[in-house]
């Protein structure tokens, strides 16, 4: 042992020196560093968790956005469809009303025409009668009296009207 240089005092000195070093480094180096590394790791974990949460929120917002977009699209299509149907109904109503009005106008015009035609016929008949009377008077003035002439004309006109 002596030739190897091993002695109890030397061993104790080195062991104590090493022990002091372990204690000193633990206080000055290891404990604060481990605490700091733990804090840093915790902060990194927190940051990763926050990033993950933010990513999930973004995905959720994207899904919500797409859903709202689809809903808005469906709503738009529904409103366009409703507007088209309403316009169609309105068109049909307007057309029906126009047809009714046109029919009424035609009917009115026809009645007016018929009335005017009747009036014209009356006037024409009266005028013809006068003309015929006049013509007959002139023709038969010489042979018939006025009463006979008028009777003959009336009979003639009645025949004419029947025809």
């Amino acid at each position: 042992m002596e030739k190897l240089g091993i002695d109890l005092w030397g061993l104790l000195w080195q062991a104590v020196a090493f022990g002091v070093l372990v204690f000193g480094l633990y206080k000055l180096l290891y404990r604060p560093t481990l605490r700091m590394l733990d804090e840093r790791a915790q902060r990194i974990r927190q940051g990763l968790a926050d990033a993950d949460r933010a990513r999930r929120r973004l995905e959720e917002a994207e899904r919500e956005y797409v859903a709202r977009l689809e809903e808005a699209s469906r709503e738009g299509q529904r409103k366009v469809s409703e507007a088209t149907q309403a316009a169609q109904r309105l068109r049909d109503e307007i057309l029906a009303q126009a047809r009714q009005e046109a029919a009424a106008l035609i009917m009115q015009a026809r009645q007016q025409i018929e009335a005017e035609q009747r009036q014209a016929l009356e006037e024409v008949r009266a005028h013809i009668a006068e003309l015929a009377v006049e013509a007959a008077r002139r023709v038969v003035r010489a042979s018939l009296d006025e009463e006979a002439q008028r009777r003959l004309v009336e009979e003639f006109l009645a025949d004419e009207m029947r025809q």
Partner: peptide, 28 residues
């Protein structure tokens, strides 16, 4: 006192000094 005892003592003091400087400048 042997020369290796002196050396180990110097190394221990040196490391403690470095650790003290590190501790003083430690920043997270």
């Amino acid at each position: 006192i042997t020369n290796t005892m002196i050396t180990s003592a110097i190394v221990v003091l040196l490391l403690l000094a470095v650790a003290a400087v590190y501790r003083a400048r430690l920043s997270t």
